[in-house]
Design a binder for these strands. Structure first.
Length: 495
RNA sequence: CGGGGCGUAGCGCAGCCUGGUAGCGCAUCUGUUUUGGGAACAGAGGGUCGUAGGUUCGAAUCCUAUCGCCCCGACCA
């Protein structure tokens, strides 16, 4: 590891889409900076950070003592995060890339459904929360701040009040409905006892979306539509997240489902019909405007028994054939709510309907724990050597391991692969350090890139390199061109 | 917020009981030899021992206070 430049957080090239400019614009990423003297002619270009002698990847051999669960340990060891204080983390380059990849997927799937991104502030005024009655109700979890004028402020734990305020100030006709606005923003909940790294931090990145509809029926369609977007979102991240009937908690409301990823370290006990784990949304086409289609998906994915301990019903559970009853642990990675007119009544968010009557809008809110997902994915996908990233979120698409740095042929072959992968729009991470093979393999296994190309003089004599799957450990010897073609096919790129 | 534990080099730890030159492993830097699953040798750099008081000729060590972090419980995404 040589600390020379700061990655610019360029979005994952597989995620090119209509929202990328928005994402870039909100990142505030620093430009690459040079910090080395100019005598480094033998080094790689400093503006080319995707090789390990240039990248910032502070991996640890030993596990820091504070980490209890595997995702926390691996995130620290892989140089993804550094704790800043209890429950608050800096995201180092590798972790930041994964976080951004997850964020990109969430953006894409929301916008496919016609949901509109915006950005609300982290710091909010207490007055707004007094209107909804939640300033007192929220309790110690809310971080309260006083500014220099003694105004009461707070670091937002969620955004129903702000979005409702935006809505009521700007929308007054049923003709502007339906409307769904969402953002991805940092939140703060002052947990008594943060733990498990980013899985239960105090500061966390969350997507929260809010739908505004004229009628209950329309709002329930919005609810169903969100359920579909969430199924697609989690599947793209390589996760199976099961929607379970849940408790509405402080948000309030009638209908709510939580999405849980099964993992031994989950905070919730869950009970479900084993048939539910066979369900896949897959790449089926869906018309988000069709009430019937979205309703159909909701029924398909929620008709079987699946509940957390909060809503578990032994009698209903007992109706499932015994061999299909399952109890397990789950990590909550999202929740959708329909809460009707709770906030619109309290805060006066009304529109004129077609007959000129002022009516409160029907609302729902829908959250995805973006930063928490980084930990959840690792919990669901790792082995004793390290992380195993699903292709959809991996920080780099493929690792290139040069077994004999300084060997002319090996160096040239690696440079060629590196250049061609970049030209395809993929992001390789080239381990060009002067390390022994074992050290390079251990690092690659730890940081979990799904594919590794191993290049050494021995193979090159026969015109081959080795392509290895991190997940299966299976290697095959291929010509460099064949290896590139396979990688291209895996990521859907033209070779 | 109740109960427990820990703050000594970037990381992991010993030293504290019984006060007297601040150590070990990994990592880092230099050199040589190495190089297909975390290399070997030689050398080097890096710590006001969390902070503040107190006791003492002398404090990492004893006492008091305070801050931080971790674990169990309650709570929570």
């Amino acid at each position: 590891m040589v600390i020379t430049s700061v990655t610019d957080g360029t979005p994952n090239p597989t995620g090119r889409n209509h929202c990328e400019d928005l994402i870039r614009a909100t990142d505030a990423c620093p430009a690459p900076t040079d910090r080395l003297p100019t005598d480094a002619a033998q080094h790689a270009p400093r503006t080319d950070p995707m090789r390990l002698t240039r990248y910032f990847l502070p991996v640890l051999k030993e596990t820091p003592s504070e980490a209890q669960i595997v995702s926390h340990r691996l995130m620290l060891r892989a140089g993804m995060i550094k704790q800043a204080s209890a429950g608050i983390y800096s995201w180092l380059p590798l972790g930041f890339k994964v976080l951004k990849n997850i964020e990109n997927i969430v953006h894409e799937e929301q916008q496919k459904a016609g949901h509109i991104p915006l950005l609300m502030p982290t710091i909010q005024s207490a007055d707004l929360w007094r209107e909804s009655g939640r300033y007192e109700a929220y309790g110690e979890e809310m971080l309260r701040i006083t500014d220099r004028h003694d105004r009461e402020m707070l670091f937002g734990p969620t955004n129903e009040e702000l979005i409702t305020d935006i809505f009521r100030a700007n929308v007054s006709s049923y003709k502007d409905l339906p409307l769904t606005l969402y953002h991805i923003q940092w939140k703060f909940r002052d947990e008594v006892r943060p733990r498990f790294g980013v899985m239960r931090g105090r500061e966390f990145l969350m997507k929260d979306g809010y739908n505004f509809d004229l009628t209950r029926e329309d709002a329930l369609h919005s609810y169903n539509r969100h359920l579909v977007t969430y199924l697609r979102t989690y599947e793209r991240m390589g996760l199976q997240a099961i929607p379970m009937r849940a408790d509405s908690g402080p948000i309030g409301g009638d209908d709510t489902h939580e999405f849980l990823v099964l993992a031994d370290t989950g905070e919730s006990e869950v009970f479900y019909d084993s048939e539910i784990t066979d369900l896949k949304f897959g790449d089926r086409a869906i018309d988000y405007d069709s009430h019937a289609e979205c309703q159909g998906v909701l029924e398909e994915f929620t008709s079987r028994y699946a509940r957390t301990d909060e809503t578990h019903d032994e009698a209903l559970f007992a109706e499932i054939p015994e061999e299909r009853r399952r109890s397990a642990r789950g990590i909550e990675v999202g929740q959708i709510f329909y809460f009707g007119t709770k906030y619109s009544d309290a805060m006066g968010a009304t529109v004129s309907d077609s007959e000129g009557n002022r009516v409160p809008v029907h609302m729902g809110s829908h959250g995805i724990g973006v930063s928490r997902l980084v930990g959840a994915i690792i919990e669901a996908s790792h082995d004793d050597k390290g992380i195993i990233w699903p292709e959809g979120v991996t920080p780099f698409h493929v690792g290139i391991v040069n077994l004999k740095q300084g060997d002319g042929e090996a160096d040239a072959a690696c440079e060629s692969l590196y250049g061609q992968l970049n030209a395809m729009g993929l992001e390789p991470l080239y381990d060009d350090r002067n390390e022994r093979a074992g050290g390079k393999f251990a690092t690659m296994d730890l940081i979990g890139l799904p594919w590794r190309i191993t290049v050494g003089p021995r193979g090159l004599k026969n015109g081959v390199v080795e392509l290895t799957s991190r997940r299966t450990g299976v290697s095959e010897e291929l010509t460099p061109d064949a290896a590139l073609a396979k990688i291209a096919a895996i990521y859907g790129k033209a070779g």
